[in-house]
Computed example of a mutant assay.
Amino acid sequence: MTQRLFLLRHSEVPGHRGDVAVTEAGLQLATDVGRRLGERATGAIRVISGETRRTLETAAAVARGAREAGAEVIEDGVAFALRNPDLYLAGVRVNMVSSEAAFAEQIPGLTEADVAKVTFFNEWLTVPDRVGWWVRHPDPPGDDAAAVATRIRAWAASFADREDAAEFTVAITHSPVLRAVAVDATGSDPGEPAWLAGLEAEIDADRSVRLTLLPAAP
């Protein structure tokens, strides 16, 4: 049996300094996407998210919209595989944030000046397209794009192990994850995905994974 998986970006947030909440417009968009998916589903929809506030809130809104449309929804919690890339600063895993202060506050005793001394993080904060810069970076202090794509492919392939298959699964993740997987699947970086856009994966019983880009939210 072929499994279908939608890998989607979280909905709209006002910025990326820390793990901020999804906006009201973003929650409405996620609910609308869930409703559209629910209207066309003939079986159960599984919804999974990353561990951040913005992915959790998006997933909850998608599930709510699908239920409003009459679909059966299986809320399957958090998948660690959907996390942002693992980057390390002073021996600590840090989230991809947008200021020296936001990096420093993740590590007790580290100052903004300490962050600025580290070439990777100093450059990360100055480039216009930070995620695209990371995707192309040959040696980040942690996961590169190929490592993230390998992680997601292995996680997606494991859906072939399920016997309680939903009609399809919606997985809410982050832009860097989606862009890394897109490069692996297509050979080029498509740029920032729209809110709730991403990729569709088809997973066969032999654990092979076929990925296609979604130009907009499903």
Rank of each mutant, 00 (worst) to 15 (best):
A116I: 02
M96N: 03
D129G: 09
A157T: 10
A154S: 13
A149V: 10
P138E: 10
A145G: 10
V135Q: 04
V97I: 12
G91Q: 07
G142V: 04
P85A: 12
M96T: 14
K117D: 14
P108M: 06
P140L: 09
P141N: 13
R153P: 00
T111G: 10
L89R: 07
V148P: 02
A102Y: 11
P85G: 11
F121R: 05
A101G: 08
W124I: 05
E100K: 10
T119D: 15
T150R: 15
T150Y: 07
W124A: 00
K117T: 10
A147K: 10
A156V: 08
F103R: 01
D86W: 09
R153Q: 09
L89V: 07
V92C: 06
V131F: 11
A90E: 04
A154F: 05
A102S: 15
A90M: 12
P85M: 13
V131I: 15
W134F: 06
F103P: 00
V118Q: 12
V135Y: 04
N84R: 07
I107P: 00
L89S: 04
A149W: 04
V92T: 14
E100S: 14
F120L: 13
L125E: 09
V118F: 04
L87E: 01
F120H: 11
W155D: 01
R93I: 12
N95L: 09
W133M: 07
R93V: 14
L110P: 02
S98A: 15
R153G: 02
V131S: 03
R130L: 09
P128Y: 08
Y88V: 13
A113T: 14
G91F: 08
A146T: 14
R136Q: 15
K117G: 09
V127P: 10
H137I: 03
Y88F: 14
V92G: 01
A145C: 14
L110A: 06
P140Q: 13
A102K: 03
A147G: 07
R130Q: 14
D114H: 05
S98R: 08
T126Q: 15
D129M: 08
A156Q: 01
F121S: 06
A154V: 09
N122M: 01
V135W: 03
E105M: 03
V135G: 01
V118Y: 01
F103V: 00
A116K: 05
K117N: 07
A102Q: 04
H137W: 04
E105P: 00
S98Q: 13
M96K: 05
R130E: 06
S99H: 00
A145R: 04
R136D: 15
K117A: 15
W155P: 00
A102P: 03
P138W: 13
A104F: 01
A113I: 11
I107D: 02
N95T: 11
D139A: 14
I107F: 06
E100H: 06
P140T: 09
V148G: 03
A154N: 12
P141A: 06
I107C: 04
S98E: 13
W124L: 05
N84D: 15
L125N: 11
G142N: 03
A149L: 12
L87Y: 06
D86N: 07
R93A: 10
W124S: 03
A113P: 06
D143G: 06
A157F: 05
A90H: 08
G91L: 11
D139V: 05
S98Y: 03
P138M: 13
R151P: 05
T150P: 04
G132V: 05
V127E: 09
A116P: 03
V92Q: 09
L125T: 08
L110G: 02
